[in-house]
Design a protein around this nucleic acid. Structure first.
Lengths: 341, 341
DNA sequence: CTGAAAGCGCTTACAG
DNA sequence: CTGAAAGCGCTTACAG
């Protein structure tokens, strides 16, 4: 539609060659000061911007990072986990600071996802957030590695996988919050959430939980463990099932905050008091956690730091710098849902 | 690094010309069935993807939408308003469904923002979310229009501006929630939030508030109006100031939920009971609202619908279809903070 | 310090 | 139905 301004137009007006315009605008030091100034002035006046498709095609880069967000397909059509949304915000900021564009995409677990981006030359690298079944996921990752795609991973990640991971020390987090419950005098602590190889992050939290129990002379009780998906509703249903088992329960560690909110609702439905009859603790520290009733004791995974690290490490990877995995310290956020005043 | 597969490689293997490969893969109906099938098989085997930089350069399109998110620069470095985050989630989904890529960007209010995207041929159109001072913003918009940039706007937008806007009926929302407070027996209803031409959305909510008061024989009282920024902290401070004025206050309508959370905190600090001594209502229905203590009565702006409309209208605009403004119905979410049990 | 020219990988008239 | 060729708008060796 509109007549596009190109570097040739600028060159014509400035009375120089198009090559010189390109050099002047890209900051090539060979160009003389006056020439550069003149060209910049004209470019500004004509509202000229370098065509990224052309320059990217030429240089075979994109200055773009793609964020691939996987939500478990079993999850309903509702909202994205606020934890990821918060991460998304932090990643957006970090990309802006690093002068990279951010392409955001939701993915289902189809066969093609790993190829969609870098191979399209739309992104120089990938940030991967979330996954359905980790076992399936790991295979896709292996494929990405085969293709020498640049990517970094949040959360999961395994020793056998040669991929850069930024993760929370989930075992430590699970240990610390369970230890805290025990110190509050709780002895019959349930765990809600899937703890299997398909969900390594939750599994690690579970392992931390078991460790804390054992260190305190307590034995993990299978009957106090109920699987659940990463949703409020699933946490609610799992807790209902738990409470129907007629086992003694005085605390529940839910593997994430979303489930914890559901757990609290299930407890209230039973006319029990959260924090008194049953302590509830979660994981993530989503923004809602401080406003639940009672406010939720949980483990914070700092999304600001995580986002910055994901972006920084990915850019280092793209640039060929040395990069290593990063571990984020979990941080206990003691509020009232665990019985502490 | 890796040897990139191009359409010439496919052509060579298939024993056809590169043109035919391009046609086959782009769905051009001229290509014969067998040829197409053969080419597709080879492309899949070689994991070939069309280079978007090249095809976009050639066709002068991008199949990409850019989301520009403006946060008021006066806002601290904290988190993005969850309302926008939720919108971002919904827009991401809608773009994925429409097969558009989404480029996300945070913007400060610098001179160049309007030119950054479409002119770079990285995006076919823009979605604009948030703004600092609307008056400054409107000038930039005028410039965008001059440049015939395709864009849609959330929230604000004025009759004089020839831009497609998707917005909530803020006046109606402000009216309805104020009316509700009055029906609950509240008579001394304060308004917290800036209500000026610089913040048209909030101004409309304020106008709805005034209208409801007048319709019920009440007079808006200047002393019950305190300006505030769109943050929890600012809502907290504005409410402290309000309560220090020693005017009778039995309800507060804060112009957004973030402020409402701050307002509730300020009320509690004064040893007053939210929902009893002072009713509090907000606007937006961010996900936190249902978990505050007490749960916050507010006006929902449906971000799912909003995101879908923004994307749909923008795509129509890009395609040259007729597009008109959309108005989203505000929806009262009655919870306990307004005194209703 | 500057210019002429090649080429990044596609799409699409044009010719057959 | 298919191929040869031009060209999208840049960047960057190469030559001066």
């Amino acid at each position: 539609m509109r007549n596009k301004t190109t570097s040739f137009d600028i060159a014509y007006q400035a009375g120089v060659s198009q090559s010189t315009v390109s050099r002047a605008l890209s900051g090539n030091p060979l160009v003389s000061k006056e020439t550069r100034a003149r060209i910049q002035a004209i470019a500004k006046e004509l509202n000229y911007k370098v065509d990224k498709n052309a320059s990217n095609l030429r240089t075979q880069t994109s200055n773009t990072i793609a964020l691939l967000l996987f939500e478990d397909v079993t999850v309903d059509d509702s909202n994205i986990n606020p934890f990821f949304l918060s991460m998304l915000g932090s990643i957006t900021k970090a990309c802006a600071e690093a002068k990279y564009d951010l392409l955001v995409s939701f993915q289902q677990m189809n066969d093609d996802w790993y190829a969609e981006y870098e191979d399209c030359h739309k992104a120089d690298g990938l940030i991967l957030l979330g996954y359905g079944d980790y076992l399936t996921y790991a295979q896709k990752l292996a494929h990405l590695i085969d293709q020498k795609t640049h990517f970094v991973l949040w959360g999961a990640g395994d020793k056998s996988l040669d991929a850069i991971t930024i993760r929370c020390d989930n075992k430590q987090g699970g240990f610390a919050i369970t230890q805290h419950l025990i110190e509050q005098g709780r002895r019959h602590i349930a765990f809600i959430g899937e703890a299997s190889d398909a969900t390594p992050e939750l599994l690690e939290r579970y392992q931390g939980y078991c460790q804390a129990l054992k260190d305190n002379g307590l034995t993990p009780n299978k009957k106090l463990h109920v699987d659940a998906k990463i949703t409020e509703l699933s946490g609610y249903e799992a807790t209902k099932e738990l409470l129907a088992r007629n086992e003694k329960v005085d605390a529940i560690f839910t593997a994430c905050d979303l489930m914890a909110i559901g757990a609290m609702r299930a407890i209230k439905d039973k006319q029990l008091v959260v924090g008194k009859d049953i302590a509830v603790v979660g994981y993530d520290d989503i923004s809602v956690a401080q406003f639940t009733n009672p406010p939720l004791t949980t483990v914070r995974q700092d999304t600001n730091i995580a986002g910055q690290l994901l972006v920084k490490n990915l850019i280092d990877l793209i640039k060929g710098n040395d990069v290593s995995n990063s571990i984020i310290e979990p941080r206990l956020m003691i509020r009232q849902s665990c019985g502490k005043a």
